[in-house]
Amino acid sequence: MKLIVVTGAQKSGKSRYAENWALALSARPAYLATSRVWDDDFAERIARHKSARDERWINLEQDTDLAAHGFDGEVIVLDCITLWLTNLFTDCNYNRDATLIEAKKRWAELTAVTAQTVIAVGNEIGWSLHAETQMGRHFVDLHGSFMQHIAAEAEEVVLMVAGLPLKVK
């Protein structure tokens, strides 16, 4: 598997950049969406994201089991690591350490069955004030640890700032 990580703040252009990169690499990429429908706002966001992708895309959804689809195409955009970790964190009863173990296990399952190029999108969430709650601080710690884990595996890492890509690795 060739891994590319695209990270940055919310609304920094991560998804658009990853999608354009995928379309430059493949005529028929897959989009593996990880969001759960938490509320009406999330349902609207999901619908908006889906409608923005045309018939070139193979649309897949999986909130926790990234390896479930066994996609055979050339390129997968995995959007997004942050929402996927949120789902696992919730399922692990907000236990940071248990979630990190589970996330690494599920990531290893994906990398074991995927021969494609994976463009993984995830937020940079640790650049602001410390979270007010213990649960929030634990999620920031979890997220940072996991992003470091996959960035170490990645062949390329891109940081998006105001819609502009900065090559990190």
Rank of each mutant, 00 (worst) to 15 (best):
A33Y: 02
M1H: 11
L3K: 06
L142C: 04
L85R: 09
A112V: 05
N95G: 07
V5G: 02
D91C: 05
E19R: 10
I58A: 11
R45W: 13
T34Y: 12
N59R: 10
P165I: 06
G126A: 14
K104T: 13
E132G: 13
C80P: 09
D91Y: 08
V6D: 07
R28Q: 05
I119A: 03
I76D: 05
M147Q: 07
L32Y: 11
Q10V: 15
F89W: 03
R53S: 04
L129D: 08
H149D: 12
Y17V: 10
G163P: 09
D40W: 01
V77Y: 07
E132P: 10
K2W: 06
A103D: 02
N20W: 12
P29N: 01
A22L: 01
W21R: 07
A154E: 10
D65L: 15
D72Q: 07
E109F: 06
A162L: 12
M160Y: 13
Q62S: 15
E61M: 13
T99Y: 02
E109Q: 15
L3D: 03
V113R: 08
F42P: 02
E156G: 00
L159I: 08
A162F: 06
R137K: 01
A152G: 03
N93Q: 04
L88R: 05
L78W: 01
A22I: 03
V75P: 00
R106M: 11
A47D: 11
M160K: 03
E102A: 13
N59T: 14
L23G: 01
T34R: 06
V113H: 02
K105T: 15
S145M: 11
R106G: 09
V6H: 11
G163W: 06
T7M: 15
L164D: 00
S128T: 13
Q116R: 09
N87F: 11
T86V: 03
V118C: 14
K169Q: 15
V168W: 05
N87S: 11
G122I: 05
R48T: 15
I46Q: 11
T99G: 00
V6A: 07
S12W: 08
Q62G: 15
V161P: 04
E124S: 06
K2R: 14
T117G: 02
L32A: 08
G163M: 15
L85W: 09
H143W: 06
L23R: 12
F146G: 12
F42D: 13
R56W: 03
C80A: 12
M147C: 12
L166K: 06
E19H: 09
A103W: 09
A47T: 14
